[in-house]
Design a protein around this nucleic acid. Sequence first.
DNA 1: TTTTTCATTCAGTTTATTCCGTACACACTT
DNA 2: AAGTGTGTACGGAATAAACTGAATGAAAAA
Lengths: 161, 161
Amino acid sequence: MTHPNTEFLTNKIMLEFSKTLELFGLTTLESRLFAYLYLSKEPLTLDEMSEALGKSKTSMSTSVRSLSELNLVSRVWKKGIRKDLYQANTQLFKIFMSTYIKKWIDASNRQKTSLEEIYESIDVNKDHQESKEAVQNINHRLYDIIEFHKDMENLFSNIKL
Amino acid sequence: MTHPNTEFLTNKIMLEFSKTLELFGLTTLESRLFAYLYLSKEPLTLDEMSEALGKSKTSMSTSVRSLSELNLVSRVWKKGIRKDLYQANTQLFKIFMSTYIKKWIDASNRQKTSLEEIYESIDVNKDHQESKEAVQNINHRLYDIIEFHKDMENLFSNIKL
DNA sequence: TTTTTCATTCAGTTTATTCCGTACACACTT
DNA sequence: AAGTGTGTACGGAATAAACTGAATGAAAAA
């Protein structure tokens, strides 16, 4: 990455690509870092990333950790080098989409469960006549919300990559 | 929404439902507001929302505007009432998913175009021998990134609701 | 026309997030 | 065991986002 032309290109691509990555819920820094790692031929050390992105080593450490928890980045060993080396995982599409879809399915499911618990707890007949109608209305809306969650869960579960 | 029991229920549901809505990119306040509107039987005025959510009227005004730009909320007229009235649109699944998917397709497409422009602008042979290899590497990665965007666009385009 | 009732704009304030540098902890070397 | 080269937790500073109240403007009522 020493030659000015490649550096210029890298920056340009990084700028665009990171916009996409932010759609997946990555922070600005995480996105730029991933993009940079992806474009780099060789695995990089924290210091190199820090230098390249002009951010502190601490930032790199936390960001690269987030990225590897998402399975977007892997640690790599090279004999003779003590520093940690990281590289971006390839198979962009598969990795990003599958973690993303998983996130949605999990969320839908968790939310649906909470809402169903509320639904079960409602006793329409418990109350005075005056509020009965209001409770029934809420009950009905809640039912629709739960259906909404089921539909979401279904939709995402049926996506095949 | 005067009875304590219905109010309690509404809050409980709002709390959960808004978590889901945030997944669609709504802010916390927008999410809570939409949830509240959705649960409400009647269309509501800015003052009522303000009172219910404990936030300023200004907040309500801006939030409800965002929501209606997303087609999630509609303005409603009732004769004799001067204040603006808003209600949540039903058909949760259709509206939320379709705007969401559209957002992704648009973004993929826009990004893909930018990246393709960069790709076209690269002349592998332009440079000295020493940087040629580096440029070729970037070129190759860029190609993969573009493919990634195509795949994304495809995936979302093929979702039928 | 004047007054009243709303919604919205704008400037300022508060709150939350991001980020950095110091300090600590761990591991390898000698 | 001591020393050196690493990564990470933590508190505070900088930055960005959310929120508010007073002022403005527009529309209806008197």
